[in-house]
Computed example of a mutant assay.
Amino acid sequence: MRQHQHQETVILLPGMVCDRASWAPVIAPLESFAEVRVADYGNEDSLAGMAESVLASAPEQFSLAGHSMGGRVAMEICRLAPERVRRLCLIATEHTPKPEGDAGIQETNARLGMLELARSRGMTAMAEGWSPNLLAENNRGDQALLDAMVRMIGRQPVARLESHIKAGEARPDSTDVLRSLSCPVMLIAGEEDTLRPASVMARMQSLIKHCQFEIIPNCGHMPMMEQPDTVGSLLQTWLTAAINPSNQRTDETA
C-alpha cells in the first residue's frame, strides 16, 4: 500500500458474485490519492446487512463507490450513516425495488435459473453462460476480458450467489436516500448496459442535488473492466474534486 499525503479512504463495493477483480483495473490510479479498500460482504444476505458489515470496519469518514448490487449497498450505507460518506459514486445500478407483476416474476425466474445452473453444473458454467450478457456487443469477442470475468465469478461459492439473489429480491426503494444526499455524487452508466440502462440512471440523476452523470460508449454492465481507462480517469476526477463544506440539499425535489 502506498503512502498518501491525504488521509482519504475510498471503499469500493463489488456487484453480485464479483470481488476485487472487478475493480482491479482502476485501483492503481486511485492509490496515488487515497487508501483503497475493496469490501467483502461475507455471508450477508441482505443489503442492510452488507452495509452494516462495511460500516463496521470503515473509518469515521470515507468516499464510497458501488457497482451494480454494490451501488445498492452504497445507498444503504447512505441511509444508515450519511454523515460518514464524503462523496459517492454509483456505477451501473438503480434505486427502485423489484418490479411488480410479470416483470418481477421474470426477474426472479431468471435469477433462480442462474442458481439452478450453478448448483447443477458449477459456478464456472453459470459464469460462462451469463458473462457475455454483461458486456457491450463489441466487447463480447474480447477473450481476455471474458476469461477474467469467468474466473472471478467462477471462484465464488454457490452459497454466495444464493445470498446475493436473496438480497436483490428484497431490495428497498432508495428514492428517499437519493433525494436526501448532500455529498457530491457521480453516476456512471454504460451506454449498452441492458441490465441497468442509462435511462434508469438518468432518473436517479434527477433526484440528486449535486450530481455528475457520465455515459460511457462501447460499454455494458461492467464499466471498470470494459473501459478501465475512462472509468479510472472519471474516478480520479471524482476523488480529487474539492468538496464544498457548505453543500447542503435544499427543499427542492425533482
Rank of each mutant, 00 (worst) to 15 (best):
residue 110 A to R: 15
residue 108 T to G: 14
residue 51 A to V: 01
residue 103 A to H: 00
residue 137 E to P: 09
residue 203 R to Q: 14
residue 24 A to R: 10
residue 130 W to K: 02
residue 194 T to I: 13
residue 183 C to W: 03
residue 107 E to H: 08
residue 156 Q to E: 09
residue 174 S to N: 13
residue 61 Q to L: 07
residue 135 L to P: 09
residue 211 C to N: 02
residue 116 E to T: 13
residue 93 T to Y: 10
residue 159 A to T: 15
residue 152 M to T: 06
residue 100 E to I: 01
residue 121 R to Y: 07
residue 49 G to N: 02
residue 106 Q to A: 13
residue 89 C to L: 11
residue 131 S to G: 06
residue 211 C to D: 04
residue 155 R to K: 14
residue 63 S to P: 05
residue 241 A to C: 12
residue 40 D to Q: 10
residue 118 A to S: 05
residue 16 M to L: 13
residue 178 L to V: 03
residue 32 S to W: 09
residue 157 P to Y: 04
residue 158 V to Q: 11
residue 46 S to F: 00
residue 150 V to E: 13
residue 181 L to H: 03
residue 47 L to E: 02
residue 16 M to W: 01
residue 48 A to T: 12
residue 53 S to Q: 09
residue 3 Q to R: 14
residue 160 R to G: 09
residue 176 D to I: 01
residue 29 P to W: 04
residue 226 E to R: 15
residue 95 H to E: 10
residue 241 A to P: 07
residue 189 A to L: 09
residue 20 R to F: 03
residue 52 E to F: 00
residue 11 I to Y: 05
residue 194 T to N: 12
residue 188 I to A: 06
residue 203 R to E: 15
residue 82 P to R: 00
residue 218 N to D: 15
residue 234 L to Y: 02
residue 30 L to K: 02
residue 84 R to K: 13
residue 6 H to Q: 14
residue 188 I to E: 05
residue 20 R to M: 10
residue 248 Q to W: 08
residue 6 H to Y: 10
residue 72 R to E: 01
residue 236 Q to E: 15
residue 48 A to S: 08
residue 108 T to P: 08
residue 2 R to H: 11
residue 111 R to L: 08
residue 252 E to C: 03
residue 169 E to K: 07
residue 161 L to N: 07
residue 182 S to M: 00
residue 58 A to L: 07
residue 137 E to A: 14
residue 149 M to R: 12
residue 30 L to P: 04
residue 239 L to Y: 02
residue 105 I to D: 13
residue 15 G to V: 05
residue 41 Y to R: 05
residue 91 I to Y: 07
residue 209 K to V: 04
residue 114 M to R: 10
residue 205 Q to S: 12
residue 191 E to K: 11
residue 50 M to L: 02
residue 115 L to R: 05
residue 21 A to E: 15
residue 240 T to C: 06
residue 139 N to R: 15
residue 53 S to I: 01
residue 42 G to H: 03
residue 124 T to Y: 11
residue 220 G to L: 07
residue 32 S to C: 13
residue 169 E to F: 03
residue 171 R to V: 02
residue 107 E to C: 06
residue 100 E to P: 00
residue 154 G to S: 09
residue 131 S to E: 08
residue 136 A to C: 07
residue 1 M to G: 15
residue 225 M to F: 12
residue 195 L to Q: 10
residue 141 G to Q: 10
residue 175 T to N: 09
residue 41 Y to F: 04
residue 43 N to W: 09
residue 44 E to H: 09
residue 29 P to Q: 05
residue 72 R to W: 07
residue 214 E to N: 09
residue 141 G to R: 08
residue 29 P to V: 05
residue 217 P to L: 06
residue 90 L to I: 06
residue 178 L to W: 07
residue 24 A to H: 10
residue 164 H to G: 07
residue 15 G to P: 09
